[in-house]
Nucleic acid binder design. Sequence first.
DNA 1: CGGTATCCCTGCAGATACTG
DNA 2: CAGTATCTGCAGGGATACCG
Lengths: 126, 126
Amino acid sequence: MGTKQFKGSPMEADLARADSLAREIFSDVANKWAFLIIEFLGDRTLRFSELRKEVEGISHKMLTQNLRMLERNGLVERNVHPTVPPRVEYTLTEAGQALRMTVDGMCGWTRRYLGHIEDSRRRFDA
Amino acid sequence: MGTKQFKGSPMEADLARADSLAREIFSDVANKWAFLIIEFLGDRTLRFSELRKEVEGISHKMLTQNLRMLERNGLVERNVHPTVPPRVEYTLTEAGQALRMTVDGMCGWTRRYLGHIEDSRRRFDA
DNA sequence: CGGTATCCCTGCAGATACTG
DNA sequence: CAGTATCTGCAGGGATACCG
Protein backbone atom coordinates (compact mmCIF):
# COMPACT_ATOMS: atom_id res chain seq x y z
CA MET A 1 0.00 0.00 0.00
CA GLY A 2 2.44 2.55 -1.21
CA THR A 3 5.66 2.47 0.79
CA LYS A 4 7.85 2.33 -2.28
CA GLN A 5 9.33 5.75 -1.56
CA PHE A 6 11.16 4.34 1.48
CA LYS A 7 13.04 1.67 -0.42
CA GLY A 8 16.54 1.29 0.89
CA SER A 9 15.97 3.38 4.01
CA PRO A 10 16.63 2.02 7.52
CA MET A 11 12.88 1.85 8.06
CA GLU A 12 12.44 -0.51 5.18
CA ALA A 13 12.23 -3.73 7.17
CA ASP A 14 9.59 -2.38 9.56
CA LEU A 15 7.57 -0.97 6.74
CA ALA A 16 7.78 -4.19 4.84
CA ARG A 17 6.44 -5.96 7.89
CA ALA A 18 3.63 -3.44 8.26
CA ASP A 19 2.91 -3.70 4.58
CA SER A 20 2.63 -7.46 4.54
CA LEU A 21 0.47 -7.32 7.64
CA ALA A 22 -1.72 -4.72 6.00
CA ARG A 23 -1.95 -6.97 2.99
CA GLU A 24 -3.02 -9.85 5.18
CA ILE A 25 -5.68 -7.77 6.93
CA PHE A 26 -6.89 -6.58 3.56
CA SER A 27 -7.25 -10.17 2.40
CA ASP A 28 -9.12 -11.11 5.56
CA VAL A 29 -11.57 -8.28 5.56
CA ALA A 30 -12.09 -7.49 1.88
CA ASN A 31 -14.53 -10.28 1.20
CA LYS A 32 -18.22 -10.05 0.58
CA TRP A 33 -19.44 -11.88 3.67
CA ALA A 34 -17.41 -9.73 6.02
CA PHE A 35 -18.71 -6.60 4.31
CA LEU A 36 -22.30 -7.77 4.42
CA ILE A 37 -22.02 -8.68 8.09
CA ILE A 38 -20.53 -5.29 8.94
CA GLU A 39 -23.18 -3.50 6.91
CA PHE A 40 -26.14 -5.40 8.38
CA LEU A 41 -24.79 -5.20 11.90
CA GLY A 42 -24.52 -1.41 11.63
CA ASP A 43 -24.96 0.20 15.00
CA ARG A 44 -27.25 -2.55 16.25
CA THR A 45 -26.67 -5.51 18.51
CA LEU A 46 -27.75 -8.76 16.93
CA ARG A 47 -27.86 -12.37 17.94
CA PHE A 48 -26.27 -15.07 15.84
CA SER A 49 -29.64 -16.28 14.55
CA GLU A 50 -30.83 -12.76 13.76
CA LEU A 51 -27.68 -12.06 11.83
CA ARG A 52 -28.15 -15.29 9.97
CA LYS A 53 -31.60 -14.17 8.82
CA GLU A 54 -30.45 -10.67 7.83
CA VAL A 55 -27.48 -11.77 5.78
CA GLU A 56 -29.43 -13.85 3.31
CA GLY A 57 -27.73 -16.81 1.78
CA ILE A 58 -24.96 -17.13 4.33
CA SER A 59 -24.50 -20.58 5.77
CA HIS A 60 -24.19 -21.34 9.47
CA LYS A 61 -20.56 -22.21 8.92
CA MET A 62 -19.61 -19.11 6.93
CA LEU A 63 -21.29 -16.91 9.51
CA THR A 64 -19.35 -18.41 12.43
CA GLN A 65 -16.10 -18.38 10.51
CA ASN A 66 -16.46 -14.75 9.50
CA LEU A 67 -17.60 -13.69 12.95
CA ARG A 68 -14.54 -15.38 14.48
CA MET A 69 -12.30 -13.68 11.97
CA LEU A 70 -13.89 -10.29 12.65
CA GLU A 71 -13.64 -10.87 16.39
CA ARG A 72 -10.00 -11.88 16.11
CA ASN A 73 -9.23 -8.69 14.23
CA GLY A 74 -11.10 -6.66 16.81
CA LEU A 75 -13.93 -5.52 14.55
CA VAL A 76 -16.80 -7.17 16.39
CA GLU A 77 -17.38 -7.80 20.05
CA ARG A 78 -18.93 -11.08 21.10
CA ASN A 79 -21.10 -11.18 24.21
CA VAL A 80 -22.17 -14.50 25.63
CA HIS A 81 -25.08 -14.53 28.10
CA PRO A 82 -24.71 -17.65 30.22
CA THR A 83 -28.39 -18.54 30.04
CA VAL A 84 -30.04 -21.64 28.72
CA PRO A 85 -30.56 -21.64 25.84
CA PRO A 86 -27.46 -19.53 25.27
CA ARG A 87 -27.78 -16.03 23.91
CA VAL A 88 -24.81 -14.65 21.98
CA GLU A 89 -24.84 -11.07 20.80
CA TYR A 90 -22.57 -9.31 18.37
CA THR A 91 -21.80 -5.61 18.00
CA LEU A 92 -19.28 -3.62 16.02
CA THR A 93 -16.35 -2.20 17.97
CA GLU A 94 -15.02 1.27 17.34
CA ALA A 95 -12.68 -0.12 14.68
CA GLY A 96 -15.63 -1.97 13.19
CA GLN A 97 -17.71 1.19 13.08
CA ALA A 98 -14.86 3.01 11.42
CA LEU A 99 -14.63 0.38 8.73
CA ARG A 100 -18.39 0.46 8.37
CA MET A 101 -18.07 4.04 7.14
CA THR A 102 -16.11 2.84 4.14
CA VAL A 103 -18.44 -0.10 3.57
CA ASP A 104 -21.34 2.36 3.62
CA GLY A 105 -19.43 4.35 1.05
CA MET A 106 -19.33 1.31 -1.16
CA CYS A 107 -23.05 0.73 -0.74
CA GLY A 108 -23.68 4.33 -1.77
CA TRP A 109 -21.36 3.85 -4.71
CA THR A 110 -23.32 0.76 -5.79
CA ARG A 111 -26.59 2.69 -5.72
CA ARG A 112 -25.17 5.65 -7.58
CA TYR A 113 -23.59 3.64 -10.37
CA LEU A 114 -26.15 0.85 -10.69
CA GLY A 115 -27.40 2.23 -14.00
CA HIS A 116 -23.92 2.77 -15.41
CA ILE A 117 -22.99 -0.75 -14.45
CA GLU A 118 -26.06 -2.35 -16.01
CA ASP A 119 -25.42 -0.44 -19.25
CA SER A 120 -21.76 -1.34 -19.27
CA ARG A 121 -22.59 -4.98 -18.77
CA ARG A 122 -25.07 -5.02 -21.62
CA ARG A 123 -22.51 -3.45 -23.94
CA PHE A 124 -19.81 -5.86 -22.83
CA ASP A 125 -21.96 -8.96 -23.15
CA ALA A 126 -22.82 -8.06 -26.75
CA MET B 1 -29.06 -2.64 0.51
CA GLY B 2 -31.52 -1.83 3.15
CA THR B 3 -34.83 -1.44 1.33
CA LYS B 4 -36.77 -3.22 4.02
CA GLN B 5 -38.81 -0.10 4.71
CA PHE B 6 -40.54 -0.48 1.34
CA LYS B 7 -41.81 -4.00 1.99
CA GLY B 8 -45.28 -4.47 0.57
CA SER B 9 -45.21 -1.24 -1.44
CA PRO B 10 -45.81 -1.22 -5.20
CA MET B 11 -42.13 -0.52 -5.71
CA GLU B 12 -41.16 -3.71 -3.98
CA ALA B 13 -40.55 -5.80 -7.09
CA ASP B 14 -38.27 -3.19 -8.70
CA LEU B 15 -36.39 -2.65 -5.50
CA ALA B 16 -35.95 -6.36 -5.03
CA ARG B 17 -34.46 -6.51 -8.51
CA ALA B 18 -32.17 -3.58 -7.77
CA ASP B 19 -31.25 -5.14 -4.46
CA SER B 20 -30.31 -8.49 -5.89
CA LEU B 21 -28.33 -6.75 -8.61
CA ALA B 22 -26.58 -4.64 -6.00
CA ARG B 23 -25.83 -7.83 -4.11
CA GLU B 24 -24.34 -9.34 -7.21
CA ILE B 25 -22.18 -6.28 -7.92
CA PHE B 26 -21.07 -6.33 -4.31
CA SER B 27 -20.02 -9.94 -4.64
CA ASP B 28 -18.12 -9.20 -7.85
CA VAL B 29 -16.26 -6.19 -6.63
CA ALA B 30 -15.77 -6.83 -2.91
CA ASN B 31 -12.81 -9.16 -3.30
CA LYS B 32 -9.22 -8.50 -2.48
CA TRP B 33 -7.78 -8.70 -5.99
CA ALA B 34 -10.28 -6.22 -7.40
CA PHE B 35 -9.51 -3.84 -4.56
CA LEU B 36 -5.77 -4.17 -4.97
CA ILE B 37 -6.02 -3.61 -8.72
CA ILE B 38 -8.14 -0.49 -8.22
CA GLU B 39 -5.78 0.81 -5.57
CA PHE B 40 -2.59 0.24 -7.55
CA LEU B 41 -4.08 1.54 -10.76
CA GLY B 42 -5.04 4.80 -9.05
CA ASP B 43 -5.03 7.64 -11.51
CA ARG B 44 -2.34 6.07 -13.64
CA THR B 45 -2.45 4.18 -16.91
CA LEU B 46 -0.71 0.84 -16.68
CA ARG B 47 0.00 -2.02 -19.01
CA PHE B 48 -0.97 -5.57 -18.18
CA SER B 49 2.60 -6.54 -17.34
CA GLU B 50 3.18 -3.44 -15.21
CA LEU B 51 0.03 -4.13 -13.26
CA ARG B 52 1.16 -7.69 -12.79
CA LYS B 53 4.39 -6.48 -11.18
CA GLU B 54 2.66 -3.93 -8.94
CA VAL B 55 0.01 -6.27 -7.58
CA GLU B 56 2.42 -8.75 -6.07
CA GLY B 57 1.34 -12.32 -5.86
CA ILE B 58 -1.43 -12.13 -8.42
CA SER B 59 -1.29 -14.79 -11.10
CA HIS B 60 -1.63 -14.13 -14.79
CA LYS B 61 -5.03 -15.78 -14.74
CA MET B 62 -6.43 -13.89 -11.77
CA LEU B 63 -5.28 -10.61 -13.23
CA THR B 64 -7.02 -11.20 -16.58
CA GLN B 65 -10.16 -12.51 -14.91
CA ASN B 66 -10.43 -9.55 -12.58
CA LEU B 67 -9.61 -7.04 -15.30
CA ARG B 68 -12.35 -8.53 -17.48
CA MET B 69 -14.80 -8.38 -14.60
CA LEU B 70 -13.89 -4.77 -13.85
CA GLU B 71 -14.14 -3.88 -17.52
CA ARG B 72 -17.53 -5.58 -17.80
CA ASN B 73 -18.81 -3.58 -14.85
CA GLY B 74 -17.45 -0.39 -16.36
CA LEU B 75 -14.79 0.27 -13.74
CA VAL B 76 -11.74 0.04 -15.96
CA GLU B 77 -11.18 1.00 -19.56
CA ARG B 78 -9.10 -1.25 -21.75
CA ASN B 79 -7.06 0.25 -24.56
CA VAL B 80 -5.45 -2.01 -27.13
CA HIS B 81 -2.69 -0.55 -29.29
CA PRO B 82 -2.56 -2.62 -32.48
CA THR B 83 1.21 -2.81 -32.53
CA VAL B 84 3.48 -5.79 -32.46
CA PRO B 85 4.09 -6.84 -29.80
CA PRO B 86 0.66 -5.74 -28.55
CA ARG B 87 0.39 -3.03 -25.93
CA VAL B 88 -2.70 -3.07 -23.71
CA GLU B 89 -3.30 -0.29 -21.24
CA TYR B 90 -5.74 -0.05 -18.40
CA THR B 91 -7.18 3.00 -16.65
CA LEU B 92 -9.94 3.55 -14.14
CA THR B 93 -13.16 5.05 -15.49
CA GLU B 94 -15.08 7.69 -13.58
CA ALA B 95 -17.03 4.94 -11.78
CA GLY B 96 -13.73 3.24 -11.01
CA GLN B 97 -12.27 6.44 -9.61
CA ALA B 98 -15.35 6.89 -7.46
CA LEU B 99 -14.97 3.41 -6.02
CA ARG B 100 -11.27 4.07 -5.54
CA MET B 101 -12.21 6.74 -3.01
CA THR B 102 -13.80 4.11 -0.78
CA VAL B 103 -10.94 1.67 -1.33
CA ASP B 104 -8.56 4.43 -0.31
CA GLY B 105 -10.71 4.83 2.78
CA MET B 106 -10.15 1.21 3.59
CA CYS B 107 -6.40 1.55 3.13
CA GLY B 108 -6.43 4.48 5.51
CA TRP B 109 -8.50 2.47 7.93
CA THR B 110 -5.95 -0.36 7.79
CA ARG B 111 -3.10 2.00 8.60
CA ARG B 112 -4.98 3.68 11.42
CA TYR B 113 -6.04 0.47 13.15
CA LEU B 114 -3.01 -1.69 12.43
CA GLY B 115 -1.91 -1.53 16.06
CA HIS B 116 -5.38 -2.25 17.43
CA ILE B 117 -5.67 -5.21 15.13
CA GLU B 118 -2.30 -6.68 16.07
CA ASP B 119 -3.16 -6.36 19.76
CA SER B 120 -6.59 -7.87 19.29
CA ARG B 121 -5.12 -10.80 17.43
CA ARG B 122 -2.57 -11.50 20.13
CA ARG B 123 -5.29 -11.45 22.78
CA PHE B 124 -7.54 -13.69 20.72
CA ASP B 125 -4.86 -16.22 19.89
CA ALA B 126 -4.05 -16.65 23.57
C1' DC C 1 3.16 -8.96 -25.00
C1' DG C 2 -1.29 -10.19 -23.79
C1' DG C 3 -5.00 -13.59 -23.95
C1' DT C 4 -7.08 -18.11 -24.03
C1' DA C 5 -7.38 -22.99 -23.15
C1' DT C 6 -6.31 -27.14 -20.66
C1' DC C 7 -5.08 -29.80 -16.86
C1' DC C 8 -5.09 -30.67 -12.15
C1' DC C 9 -5.31 -30.23 -7.35
C1' DT C 10 -6.13 -27.93 -3.08
C1' DG C 11 -9.10 -25.99 -0.04
C1' DC C 12 -13.48 -23.62 0.44
C1' DA C 13 -17.95 -24.11 1.57
C1' DG C 14 -22.33 -26.90 2.04
C1' DA C 15 -24.73 -30.67 4.50
C1' DT C 16 -25.19 -33.34 8.40
C1' DA C 17 -24.77 -34.76 13.00
C1' DC C 18 -23.53 -34.14 17.76
C1' DT C 19 -22.57 -31.33 22.33
C1' DG C 20 -23.23 -27.79 26.15
C1' DC D 1 -29.54 -21.45 20.50
C1' DA D 2 -24.81 -21.38 19.33
C1' DG D 3 -20.78 -23.81 18.30
C1' DT D 4 -17.79 -27.61 16.80
C1' DA D 5 -16.53 -31.63 14.07
C1' DT D 6 -16.51 -34.62 10.11
C1' DC D 7 -17.29 -35.76 5.50
C1' DT D 8 -17.64 -34.66 0.69
C1' DG D 9 -18.00 -32.14 -3.68
C1' DC D 10 -16.85 -29.07 -6.69
C1' DA D 11 -14.88 -24.82 -8.27
C1' DG D 12 -11.36 -21.43 -7.56
C1' DG D 13 -7.09 -20.70 -8.85
C1' DG D 14 -2.13 -22.22 -10.04
C1' DA D 15 0.96 -24.11 -13.69
C1' DT D 16 1.70 -24.93 -18.25
C1' DA D 17 1.36 -24.61 -23.10
C1' DC D 18 0.03 -22.52 -27.14
C1' DC D 19 -2.17 -18.56 -30.35
C1' DG D 20 -2.41 -13.62 -32.56
